[in-house]
Design a protein around this nucleic acid. Structure first.
Lengths: 207, 207
DNA sequence: TGAGGAATTGTACTTTGGTGCAATACGGCG
DNA sequence: CGCCGTATTGCACCAAAGTACAATTCCTCA
């Protein structure tokens, strides 16, 4: 259920182009799925598997940039390569600023496309992996109580137990109890590890 | 010597355009410096002060992309905004991938240019600041002896002193001596701080 | 209302980390 | 050769962190 074959999602309203690209990618042993419109793509749950998106810029209804915008806020988003027949400079710049991996012009060279796709799949693999790690960290962080999170924030700031106790108005012994629970819940083996975890969760040190 | 006024470096071989842009930026209270060619810019030591670069794409001799390439590897580089009269999509994409902040087309709207410049100056300020911090960290890290760096790598991996001692074939007391010197040289006040410093220096935890 | 989670705290003991004081050993440099 | 920096180590002691065993209080949910 995890190491699926990557899928290349081709979103383009031009049937002939779609067919050509699909054939080209098939020849390179990629699994391809085509969509006639941005809406069609949004209706599918494409982002479950690894892959990338080849996105036409100009389409009836929702255009490529709009689709990119929508996808930008989704959880397991896929890397986007734009494919445009009549894209202008401002549009390509906007797309790149919004995080597109590439912005190719039709007709696209076979080698260029394959290189871009290959790169996108590598980026996706890396992003998927780090997202999975982060999700797992967040999951265990959420098992902490509010108080434990307060203590954690102080710990990763390098505070001594007695300082934390004073800051929270409790006793040193209590802080030790909280730390023990934090260590257990997060399966930590050292403060160093805790600091790194807090870092990736975006927990800023106090003072 | 530090909080100088930002300087906008305009690199363009077209005198009339150069003048126009300079006038526009002057009116917005920016200090401007013009260059007739990429070579002229490289000869100056522009990157000493805060600022940004407005770079023409097509110029005789070294073109804009080449200059961007050269600057990419320099120490105190400035953010680049491309200004192009006849840029095409592939070129703009290439520039953006190489880290350009923006890629504007001539003739450029006054407001658009000012917005881009404003943004570039903010980016430059942020980058300069973090570069300064990093440089300072590296400087103090370099005062550590080879042995102390070994110990540091183990410490930020969360190892106990006795484990480090075993790994390095010495005694626990020796590790304590090294740690004391590390703490002093880096002016550290907690292990948490040390972990964060090591992180920004790219020191990976051992095992 | 009773079970259970959460926060709190105490006492006591062990393990780690940090420090002061001191000494030994090795290699480069003037 | 003698000085200096680096690495090493011992002993003793204190401070900080972690743990075992327990107990109390408060609040929520079934």
């Amino acid at each position: 259920m995890s190491a699926n074959q990557p899928i290349i999602h081709v979103v383009d309203d031009d049937p002939s182009f779609c067919t050509a690209v699909t054939r080209l990618l098939h020849a390179a042993k990629y699994e391809v799925r085509g969509y006639r419109s941005a809406a069609a793509f949004l209706d599918s749950d494409a982002c479950a598997d690894p892959g990338c998106i080849l996105l036409d810029l100009r389409m009836p209804g929702v255009n490529g940039l709009d689709l990119q915008q929508s996808l930008a806020q989704t959880e397991g988003r896929l890397p986007i390569i734009f494919l445009s027949g009549h894209g202008d400079v401002p549009t390509s710049v906007r797309a790149m600023k919004a995080g597109a991996l590439d912005f190719l012009t039709k007709p696209v060279e076979r080698a260029t496309l394959l290189r871009a796709v290959q790169n996108a799949l590598e980026v996706d693999a890396a992003e998927t992996k780090s997202r999975a790690i982060l999700r797992e960290l967040r999951r265990s962080y959420e098992t902490l109580t509010a108080r434990e999170r307060e203590v954690l924030a102080h710990v990763v700031s390098g505070k001594l137990n007695k300082q934390i106790a004073f800051a929270l108005g409790t006793s040193e012994r209590t802080i030790k109890a909280h730390r023990a629970r934090i260590t257990e819940k997060l399966a930590i083996r050292s403060v160093a590890e805790l600091v790194r975890i807090a870092q990736s969760l975006g927990i800023e040190p106090i003072r």
